[in-house]
Amino acid sequence: MRDLKQYPFEIQILSEEDGGGYLISFPDFSECISDGDTIEEAIQNGLDALEETIAALESMKLPVPEPGSGGSYSGKFVQRVPKSLHARLVARAKQEGVSMNTLVNTFLAESLGKKEPA
């Protein structure tokens, strides 16, 4: 039996636009997130989701990451943005003749490639 409390997690405050409350995610599991109205509720819901995620991986005979391993990266993540920003990204992607995914990948790569000010 795994000690679920050994897995690191991250808590984020959700904006009112995103429903409020708190979002919990587990760096070792790219697809395991949950939320709650309070930090305590988010943690409990997150542990429940983590237990189900591990059970699903084990039932499919897939490897379960060790706590703190960082897991495996699928190359996919979900980011909620304000509707106005979403609309601007869609418009810019159409203007550039690329998918929104390609546009955002380009923005991220360009931003990460910039040197930090000294």
Rank of each mutant, 00 (worst) to 15 (best):
Asn45Leu: 05
Asn105Ser: 13
Ile13Asn: 04
Pro63Asn: 06
Lys83Ile: 10
Tyr73Ser: 12
Phe77Tyr: 00
Met60Ala: 14
Asn45Glu: 11
Thr106Tyr: 00
Leu103Met: 01
Lys115Trp: 03
Ser72Gly: 09
Ala49Thr: 10
Pro82Asp: 11
Pro8Lys: 06
Asp48Ile: 12
Gly21Glu: 01
Leu23Met: 12
Val90Ala: 15
Ala91Ser: 15
Gln95Asn: 13
Leu4Ala: 10
Ile43Glu: 00
Gly71Arg: 07
Gln44Ala: 13
Gly46Glu: 02
Glu51Ala: 11
Lys114Asp: 04
Ala55Asn: 03
Met100Trp: 07
Glu16Cys: 01
Lys83Pro: 12
Phe26Gly: 08
Met60Lys: 12
His86Asp: 15
Lys76Pro: 02
Gly97Lys: 04
Gly113Ile: 02
Leu62Glu: 15
Val81Pro: 02
Gly20Ser: 11
Asp35Glu: 12
Gly46Thr: 08
Glu17Lys: 02
Leu108Asp: 01
Asn105Pro: 04
Lys76Ala: 05
Ala93Val: 03
Thr106Phe: 02
Leu50Asn: 05
Ser72Met: 11
Gly70His: 06
Ser72Ile: 09
Gly46Tyr: 06
Asp3Ile: 03
Pro65Tyr: 05
Ser99Phe: 07
Gly21Lys: 04
Glu31Leu: 08
Ser111Gly: 14
Glu116Met: 14
Ala93Gln: 13
Ala93Pro: 05
Gly70Arg: 06
Asp37Ile: 13
Ile33Pro: 04
Ala118Cys: 01
Pro65Ser: 03
Val98Trp: 02
Ala91Thr: 14
Met100Asp: 07
Tyr22Cys: 07
Gln6Tyr: 00
Cys32Lys: 10
Gly20Asn: 06
Phe107Gly: 02
His86Gly: 15
Glu52Pro: 08
Ala93Gly: 10
Leu108Tyr: 08
Ser74Leu: 01
Leu62Gln: 13
Cys32Val: 02
Ala55Met: 04
Tyr22Val: 08
Gly68Ser: 08
Ile24Gly: 01
Met1Lys: 14
Ser99Gln: 08
Ser34Gly: 10
Met1Ile: 05
Ala56Val: 05
Glu110Pro: 04
Leu103Thr: 12
Glu51Ile: 05
Gln6Cys: 04
Gly75Ala: 09
Thr106His: 14
Glu58Trp: 08
Pro82Val: 01
Gln79His: 00
Glu41Cys: 07
Arg92Ser: 11
Leu112Trp: 13
Tyr7Gln: 03
Leu89Trp: 09
Ile11Thr: 04
Val81Ser: 11
Ser72Thr: 13
Val81Asn: 12
Val98Gln: 02
Asp18Arg: 05
Glu110Val: 09
Ala87Phe: 06
Gln12Ser: 09
Met60Leu: 13
Cys32Leu: 09
Asp3Lys: 01
Leu47Ala: 07
Asp37Gln: 15
Ala49His: 01
Glu52Met: 12
Ile13Met: 03
Gly97Leu: 07
Ser15Phe: 10
Gly68Glu: 11
Glu40Val: 12
Tyr7Asn: 00
Pro27Phe: 00
Val104Tyr: 02
Arg80Thr: 11
Cys32Ala: 02
Asp18Tyr: 09
Pro67Met: 05
Gln12Met: 11
Phe107Val: 14
Met100Gln: 12
Cys32Pro: 03
Glu52Ile: 06
Gly19Leu: 13
Gln12Ile: 03
Glu17Thr: 03
Ser72Pro: 01
Arg80Cys: 10
Met100Ile: 14
Ile24His: 08
Ser111Phe: 11
Asp3Tyr: 03
Leu47Trp: 11
Val104Gly: 07
Gln95Glu: 15
Asp48Cys: 07
Glu16Tyr: 08
Glu66Asp: 01
Leu57Met: 13
Leu50Ser: 08
Asn45Gly: 09
Gly21Pro: 00
